[in-house]
């Protein structure tokens, strides 16, 4: 078990990508979240998973839903850079959906909420023991849906309906359109559209997930994977044995773990500062630090 101040506790870290071309085709990077949940679903490790899909009525607006088949999971592939309240379905999944073993994908803050809910199940009667697999994703910050409209349509000058993929990487916000145009926005522009709540978050790589994954640290088309818990290790080992993923040691890929550590350190240091600033905000009426 590796213990790191910024990357949390993990048993192993690898670069990986799905061996299923169908999954890879629509995925953000290595198709880890989709691939792992699909494997768990097929093996009966989970009965269903809470993931985010695009709201059919509004382009690129994520909404949580409960996927109970691999086909439904494929709908959820890819990243939407906007808030999807996945935890809102955690109780309903065990109720009218009738799930006994729930999988869930979420950002670091959602993993914190999930674990807190498991520890203090107020309003979550009979839910904690039904969480079978929690896949966390890396997250620097998130955007409200209005911000995405602003960024894509006003700054990027592209119609949101026409966008096929959005990505944050190499210091830029990338917008790929159906018509083939690619727009890059410097991250300097996007900062003011971030959700302010994200500026107090002290977790970059989903320290509390069973398995956490993200693009940072590995080449395009690959993902960095942290296996953290016993449960995560178990599922990951089974998935590897079944040949769901191909992996490379993280030391052998560029830019490697150093970049993950660098970004995690940057996020956490920056957010610690904003926490301090919030504490001193105004005169004698500092804003609350959600961590204490």
């Amino acid at each position: 078990m590796v213990q790191d101040n910024f990357l949390g506790n993990y048993t192993s870290c690898v670069a990986a990508r799905s061996t299923n071309r169908g999954i890879l085709a629509g995925s953000q990077d290595g198709g880890i979240a989709t691939g792992l949940l699909a494997f768990a679903l097929e093996q009966g490790i989970i009965d269903g998973a809470i993931v985010s899909m695009v709201d059919p009525s509004e382009p690129w607006k994520p909404m949580p839903f409960v996927a109970t088949s691999p086909e439904e999971l494929y709908f959820a592939r890819g990243t939407r850079y906007s808030l999807s309240p996945n935890l809102a379905l955690i109780k309903e999944a065990t109720r009218s959906y009738g799930l006994d073993k729930v999988g869930i994908v979420g950002t670091p803050c959602q993993m914190q909420g999930l674990r807190k809910g498991q520890l203090y199940p107020i309003g979550l009667r009979d839910v904690p023991d039904k969480i079978a697999l929690a896949v966390g994703i890396f997250c620097m910050e998130n955007f409200p849906y209005q911000s995405i409209i602003q960024l894509v349509e006003d700054h990027g000058n592209t119609k949101l309906e026409n966008v096929v993929k959005m990505d944050i990487g190499k210091g830029k916000f990338w917008i790929y359109t159906e018509r083939g145009a690619v727009v890059q926005l410097p991250l300097k522009i996007t900062h003011k559209y971030e959700q302010p709540g994200c500026h107090v978050c002290l977790d970059y790589v989903s320290n509390l997930a069973d398995v956490s994954t993200g693009s940072v640290g590995t080449p395009d088309g690959w993902s960095t994977v942290f296996v953290r818990s016993k449960k995560g290790n178990d599922v990951w080992a089974k998935a590897m044995a079944a040949g769901c993923f191909e992996t490379k040691p993280i030391e052998e890929v560029k830019p490697g773990l150093d970049l993950v550590t660098k970004l995690a350190t940057e996020k956490i240091t920056k957010n610690r500062k904003s926490l301090e600033e919030r504490a001193k905000f105004g005169i004698g009426k500092g804003l609350r630090n959600p961590y204490i």
Partner: peptide, 20 residues
């Protein structure tokens, strides 16, 4: 929490039905 005026908030999924 499910019963409401006019019926129920949500119907159950086929899986939930067979579980019951």
């Amino acid at each position: 929490s499910n019963p409401r005026i006019g019926g129920l908030y949500t119907n159950v999924s086929p899986r939930a039905k067979s579980k019951m």
